[in-house]
Simulated scan of single mutants.
Amino acid sequence: MNIGEIAKRAGVSRSTVSYALSGKRPVSDDTRQNIQRVIDELGYRPNASARALANGRTSTIGLVFPPAGNHYTGMQLDFIGSVVEAAAAYDYDVLLSPSGVDSDRSFQRLLGERRVDGAILMEIRLEDDRLDHLTAVDFPSVAIGRTAHPRGSWWVGLDHTALVAACVHHLADLGHRRIAFVNRPEPLLRAGYESAHRGLDGFTKAAAERGLTVQTYCCGDDAASGQACLERILHDDPATTALVTLNEAALGGLYRGLAQSGLHVPRDFSVTGVVASRWAETVTPQLTAADVPAEEMGRLAVELLVERLDHPDSPARHHLLAPPISLRASTAPADTTPTAPAPDLGAPTNL
C-alpha cells in the first residue's frame, strides 16, 4: 500500500496526502479526516525513509557507547534499557552505535548519513573527542556524564566526587581508619573516564580531611578481578577494615574474597560504594551504597534531547544528581577494642 492508492481512494492528489502526513502545508479538516479514514481502513504505515525525507526527521535516537571490554556491566545495561524505554514514550526508536572516537567509521556513518535525529553519549571522558566532534558539526547530542569543561553542553551527570566522599565520611563516622578504594579498570582511568577520575578525587580528598590511612586500586569489571583485588588489599595492609567501590561488576568477587579470608561483613569488614540499587541488593549482606539512579538518568537524557530537537535555539541545560546513601547491612562500627599486650614472662610476678 502506498500514497498513490490512498490518494485514489480518498479522491485527492498524491501531494495532498503527503501534506496531510507531513504537516508541511495546511489541509482542511474534512480532507485530513477523509485521508485518515482511508489510512485506517488500509492499515497504512509510511515507510520510515520516506517519512524522513518528507519531514526531515527519522524519529530515531542514536545511543553511542564504546564498550570498554568484551561485555556490558550491569549498570551499563541499566542505562541502555532506560534510554530505550524513555525514547519509546516519545515515539523514538534507538539505534545503538558501539563506537567511540570521531574517526570511527560507524560513528561517522551515524552522523554523515543522518541515520538519527540526535545522539546520547555514554561513558564520557574528561576530554571526549566524540562530543567535540558533535559540537563542531552542530549535531544535537546529550551526554550521560560531563567532561572537564561542560559549560555550554547538554548533559545528565552523577556527582561521583560528592558520592564517594559521602561513603568515606560514612565509614569514618563508624570509626574506620584504614580504608581502600576499588575503582574501575586501569585502562579506563588512563583513558580519562569521568566517573573513575571524579570518584578517585572524592575519595582522596575526603580521606585527607578525616586523616585516614588509605589505598587505591584499579579493578577489572568482573568477579574474579574483584576477588584478586581484595586479596591485594589485605596483603598490602592486613589492618584495612573497610572499602569503597565504584565497580559493581567486581562486587561479588570482593565479597567472595572477604569470605575466603575469614572476614565477616560487616562485623569484621565494612563495604560501601556507588552502585545501582538492584545490584546493591543482590549481594549478601545487601550493600550500603549511594544508589545510581540509572532509570532516571536515562529518562532525563532523552527528555533533554527531545527538548533540544524540538527547540533548537534553547540554551544548554543539564542535571547533576547526588542521591543519598541507602543504609543497608554491609557497614557497621569498626572494632576498636584494643588488643591486650602479651605478658612479659621474664618480669617478676608479685603474688
Rank of each mutant, 00 (worst) to 15 (best):
Y193V: 07
G220C: 08
V306Q: 10
V94I: 03
G69Q: 05
T31K: 15
G4R: 15
C229S: 07
V302C: 11
Y193W: 12
A207E: 13
A54Q: 09
D344V: 03
L126C: 03
P187K: 08
V27M: 15
I61L: 15
P187A: 12
F181V: 02
A191G: 04
L134N: 06
Q260V: 05
L327I: 07
L263P: 01
H311S: 13
H235D: 13
G81Q: 12
V283D: 02
P140M: 11
N2T: 10
D104P: 00
G211Y: 14
E194C: 13
G199W: 05
P98S: 10
V168M: 07
A68Y: 03
E248Q: 14
E113V: 02
A206P: 02
D313N: 12
A207I: 05
A52F: 05
S103K: 11
R114G: 05
S99Q: 12
H133K: 11
H197Q: 15
Y255N: 01
D117T: 03
E303Y: 10
A52M: 11
D335T: 05
N47H: 15
A162S: 09
Y255S: 01
E5V: 04
Q108H: 05
V292G: 06
A196N: 02
L42S: 05
D93K: 08
L327W: 06
P185Y: 12
V274Y: 01
T241I: 03
A52T: 12
T240M: 06
V94T: 05
L345H: 09
N247H: 08
F139E: 07
R115L: 15
T73I: 06
D335W: 02
F139V: 07
D29G: 09
L351V: 02
L212R: 12
Q227G: 04
E123S: 10
L321V: 07
N34D: 08
G257T: 13
T272C: 01
Y92D: 01
T147I: 02
A249C: 07
I325C: 00
S99L: 07
S225C: 10
E113Q: 15
R45A: 14
A165V: 06
H176R: 10
S153V: 09
S13I: 08
R151S: 13
I325N: 00
C218M: 04
G211C: 14
I144R: 10
V94S: 08
S49D: 06
L134M: 10
R51V: 01
V168Q: 02
V302H: 04
S261F: 08
L351P: 00
H319Q: 13
T58I: 07
A250L: 02
L251S: 04
R177Y: 05
L131C: 06
I61S: 11
R37L: 09
P323M: 13
I124P: 00
R25H: 15
A239C: 06
H71Q: 12
A276Q: 06
L200G: 10
D201V: 12
L53T: 00
P150R: 03
V84G: 09
L251C: 05
N55M: 07
D344Y: 06
G298D: 11
